[in-house]
Each structure stands twice: as C-alpha cells, then as structure tokens.
Design a protein around this nucleic acid. Structure first.
Lengths: 188, 188
DNA sequence: TGTTGTCTACCTATCGATAGGTAGGTGACG
DNA sequence: CGTCACCTACCTATCGATAGGTAGACAACA
C-alpha cells in the first residue's frame, strides 16, 4: 500500500473510533489492528497521539468546509440548503450511533492536548461562519455580533440534539428535536 | 474519618473529575490521591469502576430531582423557575469550565458500562418530566407526546449550549446562546 | 473485668493488561 | 546505494482489580 493510502486508512479508522468512543479511548494498538499494521508504524505517520488527534480534527473541519462551500455554490433555497446541513450531523448518528467529532471532543475538552484543542476550535468557527451567511436573510436588521450569536445558537442546538439522541441511542430523537427547533422558529 | 464521610468524599472528588475530564479519564489512583487514601481502599466502597460511575450518575440525578421538586414547591412565575433551572447547567461551567455529568457521559455513551448507561438515562428522563410539567402552560393544545418532544428539545438545546460554551471556554457563550433560544421562542 | 470473636476501614504488594513511545533492523524499490 | 515503509522487540507508566494483612472499635460472654 502506498504511503498516502496507509495514512488515509489510519485516519479513517481513527476517526471512526473517536466518533464512537472519544479521543481518550483512541488507542494506537486498536487502530493498528484494524488497519493491519503494527502500532509502531503509526508513529511513522503521526509521531504522537496529539499529532493524530489534531490531524483528525483539522481534516474533519476541512471536509466540512468543502461540503459547506458546495452547498453555497448550488442554487438551493434556504430550507433545502439547511436540510442538507443538518444531514451531516444526522449521518454521524446513522453510522452506528456515532457522534460528530466536534461534539465528542468538545466534551473531552479539558483533557485534550493544546494542538488538538486548536484544531477543534476551527470546526465551530467554520460552522458559525457558514451559518451566518446562510441565515443572513432571516436577520435583516441585525449587526454582525447578533448574527454570529444567532448562528452559534443554531450550531449549539444541533450539537445538543445529537448528544441527547446518542444518549437515547435513537435517531428519531434527533429528528424530533430538530423539528421542535424549527417549530419554535429557531431554524428554518 | 467515618465510613459515610469517606464515601462522600470519594464521590465528590470523582464527580468533579468526571465533569472535568470524563468517565474514561477517571482513575482510582487519582481519586485516592485527592481523598488521601490508597486506591485499593476505593474498591472497599465501590467494587468496580462501573459501580462508582453508576453511583455518581444516580446521585447526580437524585440531587437534580430534589432541586427540581423544590423549584415546583416554591411559588415562582414561569420565567423565574426556568431561570433557576438554567442556573444549574450554568453553574457547572462556572466551576472550572466543567460540564454537566449527563452531557459528558452522553458523549462517551458508546464506552460506558451498561450499569452506568442506565443511570445516565435516568437524568434526561428526570429533566424531561420536570420540563413537561413546567412548560405545560406554553403548550395548551398539545398532547403528551408533543409535550415530551418539546421538553426534550429544550433539554437538548441547553446541553448543546453547555457543550459549545465549554469548547470555547467562555461562559458568556452559554448565556448568549440561551438568550438566543429565548429570543427565538424555544424557551421562556 | 478480661478475653474472645467479629466487624470496619483501611493498608502493602502485586497481578495481568494496556497505554504511548522508541531504537534499531529489514526488505523492496528507484 | 539510499531512502522509504514498515517491522521486531522492547521500555516505562499507568490502568483496574485482587490477595492478604492489620489496627482499632465493639459486643458477648466467662
């Protein structure tokens, strides 16, 4: 397998593990077993666990940003665009009751190495930026600070819906909660 | 020190540790060092780590239920009652950027022993039950299922606000997010 | 009153498993 | 021949858990 492929495989396996059980439960030996190499070899690609965690969070954010940009390019109405945004978080739950990487890492925030924290912060920032753009039509008279706060509230509500749905191991809880948000007028 | 005191001290130290760093990061040796006993002695009170985790979650729920009942007994208007409810979650963040025990354990759900999971589930259920009661005046025409869903959405939104505020290490984010929820009409 | 038995609330010492991490070797390939 | 992509073989630290012991309190009984 080429260097790049192995690196990708490691990241894919590690990402799934973090989403399922958290950063703390991530182990080089378990990753290695799933990838089909020895744990020492992972250090060849990621010298420390912090490096791997930071790379994971960075990649997760980059992927999201790419998807978000795509959503902005396509000619979609607000509701559809927003539904596709929500679908990202929904997909994580569908995938074996896993969580958004941000959500689980934010919960473990106090235990994260600094480089991982920094990468995690980038994800919420990317979400807020996108939401500010998309939700702008809903806040015609608002200034930037107000728009940012409204966007962060939408993001927080969705993360909360995911957290609670995971705790109940029931994706319907996620859907019903988002519906309730919509009914209240919090989001389109 | 009496048996009861030591048990209480262990639970207090362990609770703070879980809220700061999660169930996985909870270690008998660290607890023992803080309490001033040896790690083996903790097994005298809690045979396994799962027993300790379950006791923690159960106690957390019991305390919450007691507080909730008190809030219902006092003659308060809806806004005040609700503000005091929110204050519980706010207090966790104030206390060294810690999280609600439920929030952090829900994030680690996939890694929790069954007995801990069961105890964690009780907390969200207790919150929903209380919120259904308190928010009933806001949903005059709704049936029980709708009321429960609305209550769960409120709970989820608050947990999300806490999660994101912790990720930003900024309690103002929690306050602003809750304000945004209120402004949208999600909660009183 | 003195002894005996049992209980509590710890202790020391150690177990096997697992964590992240490292030094140095090896085979394939350009 | 050199570099890349791994490997074997280890290290130290820490994990939850267990075995077995002990000081002190207390109750019962002779």
């Amino acid at each position: 397998m080429s260097t790049t492929d192995t690196r990708e495989t490691i990241m894919g396996v590690a990402k799934a593990m973090v989403q399922a059980r958290g950063y703390n439960a991530l182990s080089f030996r378990e990753i290695a077993k799933d990838v089909g190499i020895k744990s020492a070899s992972i250090h060849y690609y990621f010298p420390t666990k912090g490096d791997l965690g930071a790379a994971l969070a960075q990649r997760y954010t980059d992927d999201a940003v790419g998807y978000f940009e795509q959503l902005l390019v396509e000619p979609l109405d607000l509701e559809t665009r927003f539904r596709r945004y929500i679908a990202v978080f929904r997909a994580a739950l569908l995938n074996d009751n896993r969580m958004c990487l941000y959500g689980i890492m934010a919960a473990e925030y106090g235990d994260l190495p600094p480089e991982v924290r920094a990468a995690v912060d980038g994800f919420s920032e990317a979400n807020v930026r996108w939401l500010v753009q998309v939700l702008a039509p809903r806040h015609p008279g608002a200034d930037d600070v107000q728009r940012r706060r409204a966007a962060l509230a939408v993001f927080a509500a969705i993360e909360g819906a995911q957290l609670v749905a995971r705790g109940r191991d029931d994706i319907a809880v996620f859907d019903q909660t988002v519906d309730a948000y919509r009914a209240a007028g919090l989001m389109p």
